[in-house]
Design a protein around this nucleic acid. Sequence first.
DNA 1: CCAAAAGTGTTATGGATACACCCATGA
DNA 2: TCATGGGTGTATCCATAACACTTTTGG
Lengths: 227, 227
Amino acid sequence: MEDYKDQETVLLAVDCIIFGFDKKNLKILLIKRDFEPEKGHWSLMGGFLKRNETLDDAAIRVLNHLTGLENVYMEQLRAYSALDRDPVERTVSVSYYALIDIPEHSALNGRFSAKWFNINEAPDLIFDHNVMVANAMSRLRYRASTKPIGFELLPEKFTMKQLQTLYETILGEKLDKRNFINKINALDILLKTEEKDMKSSRKGSYFYMFDQVKYNTKVSDGFTFKL
Amino acid sequence: MEDYKDQETVLLAVDCIIFGFDKKNLKILLIKRDFEPEKGHWSLMGGFLKRNETLDDAAIRVLNHLTGLENVYMEQLRAYSALDRDPVERTVSVSYYALIDIPEHSALNGRFSAKWFNINEAPDLIFDHNVMVANAMSRLRYRASTKPIGFELLPEKFTMKQLQTLYETILGEKLDKRNFINKINALDILLKTEEKDMKSSRKGSYFYMFDQVKYNTKVSDGFTFKL
DNA sequence: CCAAAAGTGTTATGGATACACCCATGA
DNA sequence: TCATGGGTGTATCCATAACACTTTTGG
């Protein structure tokens, strides 16, 4: 460790991998850059860190700026620091991923040309953003099996089918309907409502809600989510 | 994303959580600061990022500076950016952890008052270094069950007992001897040597080596380490 | 009455865990 | 010969995986 003064500095940025779910597909929110470098190409939404904010603050600000959303699930992933990752300036970037439910809040800031892409149909991205997305996916898969983050991607009320489809998309594999429902019910962290979703079938399917209070109680009693 | 010019800058540092194993205990290498702030207190070894190096480079440089070691297992953990985490200057720090085998290479750079502490007997550290260590431990536990990192902490030749003790220390729980050996043997990634360690008992116990080549082959054939 | 999705339990399998005795050797 | 740590196999249990038919209701 050396003296603080006269240390070399670099720019520090955050980039957000914004995942969304529209009851069918896992998607990612990208913006079309209207400035150089790489103008016209797709990229993650990002921004520079300000002196009076933490990286978490910066990520929250960037996400809010684009989507208007607050209180979104976000998690820091890691720092990227290749010397030439940004051709303009030496910039180190810390990536964050966010999970949001698409249909309920889709008032995107018109200042940016933002668009939702199915996760497997996303275009090539600038700089090292493709790697960031790949790493985010792998973290998302891991998290999905250790914390009930799936519910962040769903509306307040959702059907078992939607929940299963979400997990299938995240994990990238088909799941058995009965085993999935048995497992979820065994966790005992859902509330079954009286309401039914009549849009999906003639019979209709019950809506469930995530019981955050019960979950928190169970966790503090030593329960650990495992799917 | 805004213009690059006139962005606010912060100092960017790396801090290394250096884990070691001396065939009995999991230890951590700390230095006693001989400069302000917090002179005389224990801390992680760290350093500022230079403009012409990546964060990985910086972590490797810092580790090498203290221990003289090269080709050490290191992994980036995460960035810490609380506004007041460093009282002198606004500094964002990226933590790395390293795994080294203690006895074989213990020529520490005398310029630093460095000392190995048992992981559970380490002193209070400056700034947010306690949190960094706690997070590193939890990552170490996770990694130990998904990748064969344990071998980084052992000498080239080691006994089953040493390997088991290492895993017990990392995981923080006693393991059954027969089950552990069965599991390790089932993985089929060790080479049993003809040599015996005669220091530990009258009967002596066989030395094993990690078969890196076999492991790599198995991994590229779809094998995943799981303990 | 038919099509389409919802809802519901049991069996089989395999991995994880618990467990105790003999062996080799130096002193 | 004895004390010390090394080395070895099997039975049980539990969690996971496989699997098919009935229900509801709008058209």
